[in-house]
Design a binder for these strands. Structure first.
Lengths: 248, 248
DNA sequence: TTTTATGGTTGACTTGGATCAAGCGAACGC
DNA sequence: GCGTTCGCTTGATCCAAGTCAACCATAAAA
């Protein structure tokens, strides 16, 4: 839909220029709560739009940080590498979510961000964002909320990794995905996974075989229908029950 | 040293008033990088100092958020509760560190902060902090770095919980404590744990028996000397080696 | 001083998920 | 169209950490 018309540079440019002010993700993304006039000022700042092909890096751990990225379309994973070769997926990000917040701390990115499907991102130069948020209170506050939300999300993952068993983790993961797809206007009950079993396992602190077995078991029990990456949730409450089941 | 002189209200007041400008934690805490004049403006904002007794809550999950807290002295833990009764320690905080950042997101605290020893905190009203950081670029930027650092820290914990075995987790934990004590001018090799084995276990996603066994094993192998909560690190490199050992 | 409570250690046994291994199915390049 | 590759599933076995249980140490209460 945001496709370039090679024969008409005018049209193409006007579409490319399309910034926050008429992005349909503005209620999920940074522009949330801004007035029209404020939105236009944010537009000026979000100059760079970039396409990232499936499998390509948006940034790599160690690179200098100078911008955060809003996902306009597509799907990403972030992962951290340990010196000894072990790595862990720290999150999956979809349209409207921000990438790169971890880089502010040291002015270098601390993880890799990799596109799991062809994606489009908006680069937001960080120092300019700080500048603008010194002038626009709403933007400042919303940005703080987004960072804080990331911290809360991480605590949720810590909870998951620290206290839940394999099937609970996977149930929580599916419900979380479902809820985020819903917020973007997609079906809550049917979606395609963009990541492999191994990536899911890495995120959930499990081996891919365990993830696969859990999927099979959920299917046997009628909670979901799995066909490779295509998931249909048949019984949301069943999954929810799985999660809160085992008191320790 | 920051004790009140009951006979001399003048002195006592002047000591109480002692704010960021001559706090010896200012290089670790929010004031980092501020000029003298800026520091004084921050002082105005950090009006409330509070003592929290060991075992008491600084705040509870669900309470309305309106301030973040800087630890002036003492030691805290934060934990999250699941509906089914399971809980997990999400962090241990010491002098100079900030508490409450998770509350910005929803305007309610999402975890409990509990003092593990008698402590003293500075309350920083959040809306006023936002106001001041709109005026003081350095403060704004430093605050963003602190939030980002928290995100990076959480990724580290996720890594630990997702990919490390029990002994690696405990080694990482001890090294992290040691490093933070060092930054505060304490011995890197000898310290008292403020938390129980159960709390360590909760943080590391292990049972208290496993933590206890790992301590014993570290002692047998000559890496540390343990006597209840008193820890002496005898071989830092031994611990570090334990951490990076097992490539998966 | 003894008593009680709380936290820590250690041992015996169990188990959930890892590991190893084989086989299958869909997608892609040739 | 066919082989190759990659990702997924499933089974058999193993082991790290959990569970259960007994006991010890320290500190506070009586």
């Amino acid at each position: 839909m945001a496709q370039t018309h090679p024969l008409n540079q005018e049209v193409s440019l006007s579409i490319i220029k399309t910034a926050c002010s008429n992005c349909n993700l503005r209620e999920l993304c940074l522009p949330y709560g801004l007035s029209l006039e404020e939105l236009e000022r944010l537009d000026d700042l979000v100059s760079t739009r970039r396409r990232i092909k499936r499998g390509d890096h948006l940034y790599r751990a160690g690179e200098v940080f100078d911008a955060i990225y809003a996902i306009r379309s597509g799907f990403f994973k972030t992962d951290v590498l340990l010196e000894d070769g072990r790595d862990q997926v720290t999150g999956f990000q979809m349209a409207g979510e921000l990438l790169g917040l971890d880089g502010i701390s040291t002015e270098h990115h601390t993880c890799n961000a990799i596109a799991l499907e062809d994606s489009e991102i908006c680069a937001i130069p960080f120092s300019r964002l700080e500048g603008l948020s010194r002038e626009i209170h709403t933007l400042q506050h919303h940005f703080h909320k987004v960072m804080s939300r990331e911290i809360v999300r991480d605590h949720g993952v810590m909870m998951l990794l620290g206290t839940m068993r394999a099937e609970e983790r996977l149930a929580a993961f599916l419900l979380n995905l479902s809820q985020r797809f819903t917020a973007r206007g997609f079906s809550h009950a049917e979606f395609y996974l963009r990541m492999t079993r191994e990536e899911i396992g890495s995120y959930l602190g499990l081996k891919l075989e365990t993830v696969s077995r859990a999927f099979s078991r959920f299917q046997e029990e009628g909670h979901i229908a799995v066909q490779q990456k295509h998931i249909r949730i048949l019984n949301v409450n069943g999954l929810k029950a799985l999660m809160n089941h085992r008191a320790s």
